[in-house]
């Protein structure tokens, strides 16, 4: 609803102020262009989505494994935690060209970038879930003779599932963006390529098409994870939303 109002306002302003289309095209213009040039960017969507989804899956898995390792080996936690933070402090824009130098223009350096942005929220959220087990549950388990492994599989792991999925949600929204950024570096196909080409040709309408595609697929991925969340987490009436 708010979105619709925003578009109407946008449409109105571009007409009244007579803003040239290369500066800010009206939504109607963008929409028409999207339909007209659909075959042009369709393969790009596929390429970017493939990159984003692979990156998200790998990134989340790696993020979860790192969290598990750090949790089960507390001595590792102190050693590696600063490294985790560091991995997020290095600007992707700086790192990306380096990765291209090391690994070439193929799939791999792009994938590494997405994994780098995606694993972090998952790791942090899982670690939080592992350690935030209510004290009385832990006490019951210990008194009843649970081993450390049973404590992990029966209590800490399920306890971490809701925050874990929240982490994946954040990672999902990052993944499409990460894919597009990685494509700027050089790729044959992808929304990132489409965007750079359109931008340098002053086809602002097409840049906006790219933006809308990114937003749209980020939202789709996000909702997909919300659906998975609803399926998996049935026990908490208030959480998991």
């Amino acid at each position: 609803m708010v979105l619709l109002l925003f578009f109407l306002l946008w449409e109105r302003v571009t007409h009244v102020k007579e803003i040239p289309p290369w500066l800010l095209p009206a939504p109607s213009v963008i929409f028409k262009e999207a339909i007209a040039s659909y075959p042009l960017f369709f393969p790009d969507i596929g390429a970017t989505l493939k990159l984003a989804i692979t990156g998200l899956l790998l990134g989340s898995t790696i993020g979860f494994l790192i969290a598990m390792m750090l949790h089960l080996m507390p001595s590792m936690r102190n050693a590696f935690y600063p490294l985790l933070i560091l991995s997020q402090n290095v600007p992707i824009i700086v790192l990306a060209p380096l990765l291209v130098i090391w690994f070439g223009f193929g799939f791999l350096p792009k994938l590494i970038i997405i994994i780098l942005v995606c694993f972090f929220p998952v790791t942090i959220a899982s670690l939080d879930g592992f350690s935030n087990v209510p004290g009385e549950l832990k006490h019951y388990m210990r008194m009843s003779g649970a081993t450390a492994m049973q404590m992990f599989t029966k209590v800490e792991l399920p306890n971490a599932l809701p925050p874990l999925l929240s982490g994946v949600k954040i990672a999902a929204t990052y993944s499409v963006m990460g894919a597009v950024i990685s494509e700027w570096l050089g790729a044959e196909k992808g929304i990132g390529v489409f965007m750079t080409l359109s931008s340098s040709a002053f086809r602002t309408d097409r840049v906006f098409i790219a933006i809308f595609i990114i937003v749209f697929f980020s939202m789709i991925l996000y909702s997909l994870i919300v659906v998975i969340e609803k399926k998996l987490i049935k026990w908490n009436a208030k959480g998991g939303e």
């Binding site: 009385e136 549950l137 019951y140 008194m143 009843s144 029966k154 599932l161």
Partner: peptide, 12 residues
């Protein structure tokens, strides 16, 4: 076997 003050059932 142990029964604590709080039920301490696993919520999931």
């Amino acid at each position: 076997a142990y029964m604590p003050q709080q039920p301490s059932l696993l919520p999931w």
